[in-house]
Each structure stands twice: as C-alpha cells, then as structure tokens.
Write a protein that binds this DNA or RNA. Structure first.
Length: 511
RNA sequence: GGGUUGCUAGCUCAGCGGUAGAGCACUCGGCUUUUAACCGAUUGGUCCUGGGUUCGAAUCCCAGGCGACCCA
C-alpha cells in the first residue's frame, strides 16, 4: 500500500503529490523513469487492423504498446485509460483480476498501485491482448504494465484543451500533447518539404548548403540581423536569401541546384511574417522564367497531391483550385484592369503620379520612378484580389536588381511573382548574367542604402566577380515554405506552421 | 506607429464598486463496461504588474508588461 497522499489542489501541491508518487514507486522497487519499452504496435495501426472485431470479443492477438495517459475512468475493480501515442489513441481495459494474476510475482497489489500511483499525463507501457468492449471501444486488455515516465505537471482541461494562443506558442509541447490537429500540421509540413525534395531529386537537382553567416548580406531587399565573430573580430550578418551563393554554384558548373533552409530578416512580426522562416531557392541553367513558372506549378501541385490527395483546397473558408495551368498576367495589364490606367504609356513621373492619385491611390508621392508608382498601384489594387494562384509577370527593372532585362519590353525585366490567397508565395527571374549591368544595378542599390534605405541591397564584389567568369543563362525561383504550408494546412497564422515561433519573453526586457 | 480588445484557480470561463465563483482537473470515500464515466465530500487564488481615486477596487482612472484583431 502506498503512503497516504497529502491533499493536492494547487499546482504546487499537485506537483508535490506527484513527487510523492514518484517516491512511492521507488519504494516499491519500480523505476518511475524507465529506460526502454518494447513497442510492438501503435494505436492507429491497431484501430485500423481491428475495425471488424465485434463488440465484446477478444482477439487472439498480443500487443505491447506505450503512450501517454490522456484520460482515466476508474471503478473499484476495473478501470479504463485512454493511451495516446504518436499515431492516435487506444483504450486500455484494466481488470483487477487479470492484472493482479499476471503481476503477482512482481507486485501483488499491481491493480491498486495502478489506481493510486498513475495520473493523466504519465507515460505507461502495457502488454495485453486486443479486445473490443461491450460498448464498442477497441481496447488492450492489460495483463502487465509499467510506469515509464511519471509526469509532475497536470495537463490542460481534457474537454476545452489549451486555447490560449500565447500559451500554445510558448509551451508548444503542451499544445502538441493535447491538440492532435497541431501534430497533424507539423506532420504535413514534413511531408510537404519531403515531397518538394523528392520532386527536385527526380528532376536531377542537387541540394547544396550555403553560408548563413555572411560578411555582406545580399539577394533580397531586407534588413539583416547583425552578429559578431570574436576571433576574426568582425561583424557578420545572418543571410536574408540564398540567391547569390547558389548562383555562384551555377557559375561553378552545377546546372541544377537548390537549397531549402532558414532565412533571417530583421523585420516586423505578423500573421504572415516570422523573423526566421524557411525558403527554397532553385536555379536551373539554360532555363528562363517561363520554365520556372512550369516548375513552380509542378512543385506545388505535386505537394498538394502527395500530402492532401487533391488540388482543390479550402483556405480559411475560401475555395482554392490549384489545378494547372495558372493564370499568367503582366503587372501592367493587371494594374490596368483594376485602375483603368496604363502605366506603360507614361514617360513622365509627375504625370504617372497624377494618374495614380486620380485612380484613388495613396502614398505615391515618395515614389522615385514610374516603376515604383506601378508597383504601388499593384500592391494597393491588385494584390489583395489574387486569391486563385496567379503569376504576375514582367516587373519594372527599378525594383528587380537581380533580374535579366525583358527580351522585348524595355524598362521591364523577366520576372514573376506567384500570388495565392493574396499573398506573395514565390518570386522568380530569368537571372541577370551580364556582370557590367549587374554591377551598375547593385551600385545603384548601394547608393540608396548609403542614402538611408535600410532595405536596399549592397554590392557583393565577389558575386559580381563570379558573374565575370561567366554564368550560363539561368532561371531561378524562390518560394516561401511557411506560406505554402499555411496554404496547404489551412493555417491562419505563420506561427501555426512554425513549431517554435519567436516570442517576446514573458517577463519583459531587462532595460 | 495608430485604433480596438483580452489578461481572474492547473485548464475553460463567469463576476464589472461591497466576504473571489462555476465546470473540468486534483485529494478522499464508493463503484467490474466506461469513453467529458457517475455519486458523495473536501479543497485550490500575487484577480498580469505598479501607482491613483474611494470608507471599500478583480471591478473605476493612469502608467507599464505580454497577447489578439484591424489600420498605416
């Protein structure tokens, strides 16, 4: 018999009571923190295998399973536990006679100890046979059990679960324990990234890792995180893109490369932005942005088919069809459709601004070029309406310093961005390969940066030198993995698809 | 950056100027077919923090912290 339990009500006392049970288990010679358990089956597979087992029948099938106790329904000489493993859950049918007979040699009070010393939250290993109860619940009729890990902290309300979003993110492990759909999201995320890698592997792309720590961050318009290397005594930046190094690999002779990895941007946090996020960038020699549209469609459709089994999805109540081909429209045409203004017709900046204001746009006064006015018009009028997958093509050169000039349209570049549910999901160019042009464009960016534009790009001399050795015609594409996962898992916030999103410390700063 | 809003028991929430509450969880007793088990009993609090108003503040006011939503 276990020692009498102290009253346990407050979390402090609950913890104390559970620590007492830890000691009681040790007194009985049982290790409350076991080393291994021989698991023969998982819950979901058993549920699947025995769907046909009639109520009240026992199968001649022995199993040894393990998991966390999620619910306890205890009677005098009978108890039902719900045991949860990674795949799902299964009921334990705990009959006093069966257990005390089977465990007589090790613990003659085995059933009473089970009742007294286990709690919701503990990990339990059991051996027994499969049976379906009279009431129809598939169960393991337990002969022997072992406490594998004693939990000290109580779990959240079994019915309401954990809903406080801040707590869910701060204590994701608790969120994962009690909210099965959260586990499902991260499982799907893994399947999505695996399907992308598998597809690219089939297309003979190879993944090469490029540096996170860089002396000069480049490849995107974004503010970097700054860090410091002690022995080299130098300031370093966390990468804001993988672009410039992957292109160096194309210069080096690889023809199909990609990297899926973490990117860091020192910017705001929102439902669509986390300071660290995952991107994939891929580069294919001898290809252009049209080829990149095809591969982008293929990657996303393939992922949807493999993970969801369909290309017809719902995002936050909105029906989205991913079946290809997706709409392709130039930025100029898209803006003209919405505003009635053809910005391609302008040669005078002031006139373009005038027309933009007449069309009801705001914030165009600061625009330095007609291209910036066009982009502003696009972001304000077109972007939110791009719910179904749409490639917006042919961007102004002023906002695309790494893209090759359009082969037919002066002032534009061969670039597209993919929008789904109003969000930029991918960005791609026919890559600029002319080192002289590239130098000029990056010098212009560096000048803007020197003038105080914190998101302007800088001049990476070594990258330009690489181009001077000659880069073959290349198509490149970058995609936000988190946003893709949000789309395919119907997640409203990027924090729902990042296991441990960045949060402010709960107790506030030190200053 | 601006606006709106939330923070009360381990969890989910009520209370909105007059003794801090409910359900679940926990503890004790009972129970061999439960599955939000049930029946009975006992319990559990820095009402986010700090000031202020008041005879009296979880409640009203001010400042701060951490979130959520909307706008820029």
């Amino acid at each position: 018999m276990a020692s009498p339990q102290p009253d346990a009500q407050s979390p402090r006392e609950i913890r104390a009571a559970r620590l007492q049970k830890v000691n009681d288990l040790k007194q009985l010679g049982l290790n409350p923190y076991a080393y291994t358990w021989d698991v023969t089956h998982q819950a979901a597979a058993l549920q699947e295998k025995f769907t046909e087992l009639p109520n009240g029948e026992e199968a001649d099938f022995e199993v040894s399973i393990a998991g966390r106790i999620m619910a306890r329904r205890v009677f005098g000489k009978l108890a039902f536990f719900t045991l949860q493993d990674e795949t799902g859950s299964i009921q334990l049918f705990l009959d006093k006679k069966t257990i005390q007979t089977a465990m007589a040699e090790t613990d003659e009070q085995a059933f009473n100890h089970l009742k007294q010393l286990t709690d919701v939250g503990d990990f339990l290993g059991v051996k027994g046979v499969i049976k379906r109860t009279d009431k129809g619940e598939l169960s393991v009729k337990v002969s022997t059990y072992s406490v594998l890990t004693k939990a000290l902290m109580p779990l959240p309300d079994k019915w309401h679960g954990l809903t406080d979003v801040a707590k869910r993110y701060r204590q994701r492990y608790v969120d994962l324990i009690v909210n099965p759909e959260v586990r499902d999201t991260f499982r799907k995320r893994a399947l999505i990234t695996a399907s992308i890698r598998r597809y690219l592997d089939q297309q003979n792309f190879i993944e090469i890792e490029t540096p996170v720590l860089q002396a000069e961050p480049g490849g995107a318009d974004a503010r970097p995180f700054v860090t410091y290397h002690n022995t080299m005594d130098m300031q370093l930046y966390l990468r804001i893109a993988t672009e410039l190094h992957l292109k160096r690999l194309i210069v080096g002779g690889f023809e199909r490369v990609f990297e899926m990895g973490r990117i860091f941007r020192n910017e705001g946090i929102s439902t669509r932005h986390n300071p660290e996020f995952t991107s994939i960038e891929l580069y294919q020699a001898y290809a252009d942005y049209h080829d990149m549209m095809d591969i982008t469609e293929a990657l996303i459709v393939n992922a949807a088919q493999e993970v969801l089994g369909t290309t017809d999805i719902t995002y936050q109540g909105e029906a989205i069809t991913l079946s290809t081909p997706w709409k392709r429209i130039t930025m100029h045409d898209a803006v003209q459709e919405k505003t009635g203004v053809d910005f391609a017709a302008f040669t005078d900046l002031a006139a373009a601004k005038e027309a933009a204001k007449k069309a009801g746009l705001h914030g165009v006064d600061d625009c330095a070029t007609i291209g910036h006015v066009l982009n502003e018009a696009f972001e304000q009028t077109v972007e939110p309406s791009l719910i179904q997958p749409t490639f917006i093509t042919d961007y102004p050169v002023e906002i695309s310093p790494l893209a090759k000039p359009h082969r037919h349209k002066p002032g534009l570049v061969e670039r597209f961005e993919l929008f789904i549910v109003g969000r930029e999901t991918a960005n791609s160019f026919s890559e600029l390969t002319d080192p002289v042009d590239q130098r000029q464009r990056l010098e212009a960016q560096a000048a803007k940066k020197a003038a105080g534009d914190l998101e302007a790009q800088s001049l990476d001399e070594d990258f330009v030198t690489a181009l001077e050795y000659g880069m073959p015609p290349t198509g490149g594409m970058g995609m936000g993995i988190d946003r893709l996962v949000m789309l395919l898992t119907d997640a409203p916030s990027i924090r729902d698809v990042i296991a441990f999103p960045l949060l402010k410390p709960e107790q506030g700063g030190t200053d």
